[in-house]
Amino acid sequence: MATANFSPALRAPASSRPYTKANRGYGKRSSPNQRPAHADDFMLLPERERYIAGYVDHLPDGAAMDIKSLAKSIPLYGQMAVGSALRALGVAGHLRYAQCRVEERGQVRWVTRTFWSRTARDNEWWDAFLEAENNRASQEAAATTVPQLPPQVPTEAPAPQTDAESPAPVTPAEPATQPTSPAPVPVVPQQRTPDPTPGHPTPAYLALAQLGRIEPRLPLSATDCTALEPLAAQWFARGVDADYLTHALTSGLPAQVGSPIGLVRRRLHDKIPPHLPTTPTPATPGSPVRRLMMECTGCGTPGPSEALPDGLCRTCRKPDPDAASEQATGANAERNVHSLVAELRGMLKHP
Rank of each mutant, 00 (worst) to 15 (best):
K28E: 00
F42L: 02
I74C: 09
S16M: 14
G54M: 07
R50G: 01
S16D: 15
R48S: 05
A14I: 11
F42Q: 04
D41Q: 02
L10S: 06
L10Q: 06
D41P: 02
R48Q: 10
A88I: 06
Y51G: 00
P13D: 03
V56F: 04
A37Q: 12
S7W: 02
Y51T: 04
E49P: 01
A37T: 13
N33W: 05
Y55F: 14
A14F: 11
A14P: 11
A39I: 04
A37N: 12
R29L: 12
A85N: 00
L10F: 09
N23I: 05
L59D: 07
R24V: 11
M65Y: 06
L76I: 07
D41N: 03
A37E: 13
R48K: 10
P60C: 10
E47L: 13
A64S: 15
Y55N: 00
D57V: 04
K28D: 04
S30L: 09
M80C: 06
A22I: 05
D66N: 15
Y55C: 02
Q79N: 10
R48W: 04
P36V: 02
H58V: 13
I67S: 11
G83E: 11
G78N: 09
A22N: 10
A12T: 03
D66H: 11
R17S: 15
L10P: 05
G54Y: 07
Q34V: 00
A88G: 15
M65T: 15
I74A: 07
G83K: 13
L45Q: 06
L59S: 06
G27I: 08
A39T: 01
D40Q: 09
R11W: 01
T20M: 13
D40L: 09
T20L: 15
R87W: 04
A81D: 08
D57S: 11
Q79A: 15
G27R: 08
T20S: 11
Q34C: 00
L10M: 07
N23S: 12
G25V: 02
Y55R: 09
R11F: 00
R11V: 01
R35M: 07
